[in-house]
Write a protein that binds this DNA or RNA. Structure first.
Lengths: 228, 228
DNA sequence: CGCCGGATTGAACAAGTGTTTAAACTACTG
DNA sequence: CAGTAGTTTAAACACTTGTTCAATCCGGCG
């Protein structure tokens, strides 16, 4: 009998049993995925009997819900404090600075499933990104756009999508976005440099960009005409 | 007892039983995910006995492998024909034009798991994207870059990540990227327009972009100095 | 026809799932 | 000290999982 997951338990672990179970579940989801997160695996990782897991949360589904809620609350809490001290509202920063080590891994796993709690969190993040971009436009950092919400949504979908794809990114660029230590990694540049280049100046030449825009508006005009 | 999945079976279905089982499995994965794709669900969808599934593929894992391989081959085949007739090498186009209706949904599900077959496919797609971008630079469509591979990798990670996030995109923008009919949908613009705006001119103003670039190179220089 | 080999079936199997339950234990109160 | 309410446990439950297996079906060949 050996522990599969070594929870970073301090010499004297003063967390309640319920909290220990919740944390073990989060770590298990982050490491093995939701499908592989069973009552017995969580129980073993939290060092309790399987029955205790159900006793504290009622059912496995409620445990999952509790984990989603806890992670969502943790992210919202971080964003609030980040705004209060004036630093940027960056999701990757939230992942790095969280006291929940496996937050990135957990998000990467649950973003692909459809949980209403996670869906609500994503919606909120898009809303936050929109107001943040709005401010960036006002301070001259970001370009204005016809579709602020659409732009914010796509930026968030790309960011979170990259999080879900972290194993592929690790393989392609040597950089694991879910690793809390990754911010200090020299491989950070392998992701950040090209990403900021794309977000800074785009990938298309201005001449092609203009042509594409014309074709686009022509297409949507044709679409309107067809509708008549 | 009713069929959960209605395979688009022609009046006279001339596919072999093995092919029917494989197609049913792909559709089941696309709709319900890999964890929910069980022997009995596949058997029911393919209208065969559970034993037949194992008889033809040896095990459930080998069936999954066969599905991955089949999808990967189908995408590579499409790309080859697309290049041959000179049209663009666009992944979303491959999803739309494939004769496998649920290819997009299947990819969205398996990109989050770690399958060596899918990993190899992603690596190939990045490689293809790199040479495609290289040609776009030569023809004056795309800007040159210091890190062609990094740029291609990130563009692919963002695109595929958005595919995995398709349910969130559907909710946020009303556009489902996995739907084969989506290319004809008027909601296409809700995704394509802001996406092309970002890829065309970026999101940052030139002045901020310059400052960020300076900060970036200063940071990596400092990183080099610290290493000494 | 008689036969044979692959395809197909449905019943079994062991292992793993979430959940229930009764018993034991623990800590705190009257 | 006795009692009690909340924890915790291990064993059982019903169910689903992938897989095995003997029996049956079916098409082609001698």
């Amino acid at each position: 009998m050996f522990k599969l997951l070594n929870m970073s338990s301090t010499p004297t672990d003063d967390r309640t049993t319920k909290a220990r179970i919740r944390d073990a579940a989060i770590e298990c989801v982050a490491t093995y995925g939701v499908a592989a997160t069973t009552v017995r695996k969580v129980a073993e990782a939290a060092d309790v009997a399987p029955g205790s897991v159900i006793h504290h949360f009622g059912s496995m589904e409620e445990l999952r819900f509790a984990c989603d809620t806890y992670i969502a609350a943790s992210i919202r809490e971080y964003k609030r404090s980040a705004i209060a001290q004036g630093s940027g509202v960056d999701l990757t920063a939230a992942i790095q600075n969280s006291d929940i080590g496996s937050m990135g891994g957990y998000l990467a796993q649950v973003l692909a499933e459809d949980s209403p709690t996670v869906a609500k969190l994503v919606d909120d993040l898009v809303g936050d990104a929109e107001v943040y971009m709005e401010q960036a436009v006002e301070t001259g950092m970001a370009r204005p756009t016809d579709d602020p919400r659409g732009r914010a949504a796509i930026l968030m979908l790309w960011s979170l999508g990259a999080l879900v794809m972290h194993k592929h990114m690790q393989r392609l660029l040597g950089f694991d976005i879910t690793d809390p230590e990754s911010a200090a990694s020299p491989a950070l540049g392998a992701y950040a440099a090209p990403a900021y280049e794309i977000l800074g100046e785009g990938i298309f030449t201005p001449s092609f960009s203009d042509k594409a825009r014309e074709a686009f508006s022509a297409m949507s005009e044709k679409d309107r005409d067809d509708k008549k």
